[in-house]
Design a protein around this nucleic acid. Structure first.
Length: 660
RNA sequence: GGUCCCGUAGCUCAGUGGAUAGAGCAACAGCCUUCUAAGCUGUGGGCCAUUGGUUCGAAUCCAAUCGGGAUCACCA
């Protein structure tokens, strides 16, 4: 609020002093650097203005400084250092600011205007074949937090989830369960539903890989045996491998070459030995066998049956998905995440076909001879992209075109924000280009909120290598860490069991959420499960601690916070002035976080605020102050700081404890 | 190879045209008979990947180079 008023005054100053209007973009004001902060609060950069004032930087700064000091009662004094005009704001301004705002418990938070067109924020978007993991946690926290930030800016927000409940992956789980599940259920196994289904997905993958590996090793063995015969020639290998093996002659010759190279490396071996080949080559040759896998064929058969509505398959599908949803609900609940609406791909996956048909009719798309539909985006710097398979079934893009169109028709949103990892940047580029080529006016309203990957010390998370950090495990772990740390500090005397349990949950989750949200969403981040959840320094619990500390202070004072006396003249300390400056900046930060879709802005701000409060708390006593006006002022300042800490943390989806 | 993102202290990260580049962790040294020490204070630690350009001014903008990652499927 002080910013706007200053910008306007500076603009007026220019008009009056130099007879020149000044466009607001040229006015660059910011908080004064720490080294000059004892004498000033706000600094105006005059360098960009000298071209218009036609005076030296020093002269211009002095002119404007004088003008502002005379004109604005809250500009107490000014000083000029080189081309910087440093303004000192009257302490009465700060006291009045506190007086006017400290009882506003929703300070900085607007109420959503539900009459206006909504922002749709889609996030989470899990597959139903696997439990949620650390990557989903970042997604969920970002989606939840930006929804809250947008709401705090008055936006009408609709939070939606799009569950991928159909496709080959869930059929793999279903097939494995049918074959080897022995009617196991969450109840009989004691496993959480999503974990149970995930178990069978992994089992499928193992058996499938083993099957392919067996075929490949058989081929390798035959080649190896041939290589060991005295009069080996390539034709005899080809003859032996043409029947019953899916490899082309080129493949076989390549494989023979690779084996020869390996044999040169390791030397001659016994006759029963079967050589192994490099990992990449093994993967490639197994990939070529894909069509020969009975298991995969069966899974594909199952998918076809699903699509034709086979009752038995549908029944199993419903049962297993139900288990998964029950599992997801537990995870969402413990994370504190929810949605206004959940879409299921099984209900939306056909929607895109009409959009594609329309595009074909309008000549934006074209049909190839085999019947598949494509769009050519080479003039946009992208490739040709498939929109509908030759057999008429949808691909991912088809579905996204359909759901986007359906959502637009249902809600007429002013924006559709997709919280999806940056690995899908290309997909969303294509989606937007396709829609704009079809002249949908709302194509520009689509925003891919692209965020970076979560990396582990060992590298990327890979389910194949078992390096995935499970969401439930992680949540349990951070709560347990919170319990241990709290016990070690011996702070639980006055807590009953349930209160203590709730505190551990608040602290553990606060630590986890803050750790993830404080990082710029766009960047990849490093997550070390053992070291990441700290309780000191720039962490969630540190900020929570500051809040609890203030609550303790307020409990001990006998004053009614609504009736503090903030009239009259008092002298305030440097620490108090700094704190008030930060408080007054909260509105700007909330808006900035929404403009940039960045919870990290809130996180970094609230950390600064908590740190500043602790400096104040450490140096200046509140309850022991004998001057009642000073005491009231400090109580009000403490109370107000706590409100802003709570409001900030809530924007991150983090709770704050009354005691800790 | 094309496109996109990233490179800042030993580690994890802020800062994205403005003054002498900041935090936390880790290390070391202090501060609890005093409102919660999960805190506060101090010390050390940097060719902001490299080179060139734009600018009164560049970690920040542009170009190239070097490193790291993602993506370019009739997968989702």
């Amino acid at each position: 609020m002080i910013w706007q008023s200053l910008i306007q005054a500076i603009s007026e100053a220019f008009n009056e002093l130099y007879g020149q209007p000044l466009s607001p973009e040229l006015i660059n004001i910011q908080q004064t650097n720490a080294q000059f902060r004892n004498d000033a609060d706000i600094t105006l950069m005059v360098f960009p203005l000298v071209r218009i004032s036609k005076r030296s930087p020093e002269q211009t700064a002095n002119d404007i400084g004088n003008y502002l000091q005379n004109k604005l009662d809250y500009v107490e004094s000014f000083s000029v250092v080189k081309g910087f005009l440093n303004l000192r704001i009257a302490q009465n301004f700060w006291i009045t600011f506190l007086k006017n705002n400290y009882t506003d418990t929703t300070f900085g938070i607007k109420t959503p205007d539900t009459t206006q067109a909504p922002f749709i924020v889609e996030y989470s978007s899990p597959n139903t074949n696997k439990p949620l993991h650390l990557g989903h946690i970042r997604n969920n926290l970002l989606g939840d937090s930006i929804s809250k930030i947008l709401k705090a800016n008055g936006q009408n927000v609709l939070q939606v989830n799009l569950v991928n409940d159909r496709g080959i992956h869930i059929c793999k789980s279903m097939l494995a369960w049918q074959k080897w599940g022995k009617d196991e259920t969450p109840e009989t196994s004691g496993l959480k539903g999503d974990k149970l289904v995930g178990k069978y997905y992994v089992m499928f993958d193992k058996k499938y890989k083993a099957q392919l590996s067996r075929i490949l090793r058989k081929a390798i063995k035959i080649i190896y045996t041939e290589l060991n015969t005295d009069n080996f020639d390539e034709n005899s290998i080809l003859k032996k491998l043409t029947d019953g093996f899916p490899y082309t002659p080129e493949d076989i010759l390549l494989l023979t070459k690779i084996i020869k190279e390996e044999l040169v490396k390791i030397g001659k071996q016994s006759a029963t030995f079967i050589p192994s080949i490099p990992y990449e080559a093994e993967r490639d040759f197994m990939e070529k066998l894909k069509d020969k896998s009975k298991l995969l064929n069966e899974a594909q058969e199952m998918l076809k049956k699903w699509e034709t509505g086979d009752t038995e398959v549908k029944k199993l599908w419903k049962t297993m998905n139900k288990w998964v949803y029950a599992g997801f609900d537990v995870t969402y609940k413990s994370l504190g995440i929810d949605f206004d609406k959940t879409y299921y791909e099984s209900q939306t996956y056909l929607l895109g076909k009409d959009v594609v048909k329309e595009g074909v009719k309008e000549g934006v798309f074209y049909t190839k001879q085999d019947g598949s539909v494509w769009i050519d985006l080479s003039d946009e710097g992208l490739d040709e992209k498939l929109l509908l398979r030759a057999n008429g079934t949808s691909v991912y893009m088809t579905q996204d075109l359909g759901t986007a169109s359906a959502r637009f028709n249902e809600f007429h949103p002013s924006k559709m924000i997709y919280v999806v990892g940056n690995e899908q940047n290309y997909h969303f580029d294509v989606l937007k280009k396709v829609l704009s080529k079809m002249h949908y006016s709302w194509a520009d309203n689509i925003r891919h909120f692209s965020y970076g990957m979560v990396e582990l010390p060992e590298g990327k998370m890979k389910s194949r290598e078992g390096t995935v950090v499970d969401a439930d495990d992680l949540i349990a772990e951070v709560i347990e860490t919170a319990r241990q740390t709290t016990m070690e500090l011996g702070k639980l005397e006055s807590f009953d069991t349930q209160e203590a349990q709730n505190l551990f949950r608040i602290l553990g989750l606060g630590g986890l959420k803050y750790f993830i949200l404080k990082v710029d969403p766009m960047k990849n981040m490093m997550f070390n499960p053992k070291e990441s959840i700290d309780f000191t320094g720039n962490t969630g619990p540190f900020i929570q601690y500051t809040y609890a500390r203030i609550q303790s202070l307020l409990r001990k004072s006998d004053n009614d916070v609504a009736k503090l006396d903030l009239s009259g003249n008092i002298d305030i300390h440097h620490e108090e002035r700094e704190l008030l400056f930060l408080c007054s900046d909260f509105n700007r930060i909330v808006k900035l976080a929404a403009d940039e879709l960045s919870p990290a802005q809130i996180a970094n701000y609230v950390y600064e605020l908590a740190k500043q409060y602790n400096q104040f708390y450490q140096r200046i006593s509140v309850l022991k102050e004998e001057n009642e006006k000073l005491r009231d002022f400090r109580l009000a300042l403490s109370y107000f700081t706590a409100v802003i800490i709570r409001n900030s943390m809530n924007l991150l989806g983090i709770e704050v404890p009354q005691r800790m």
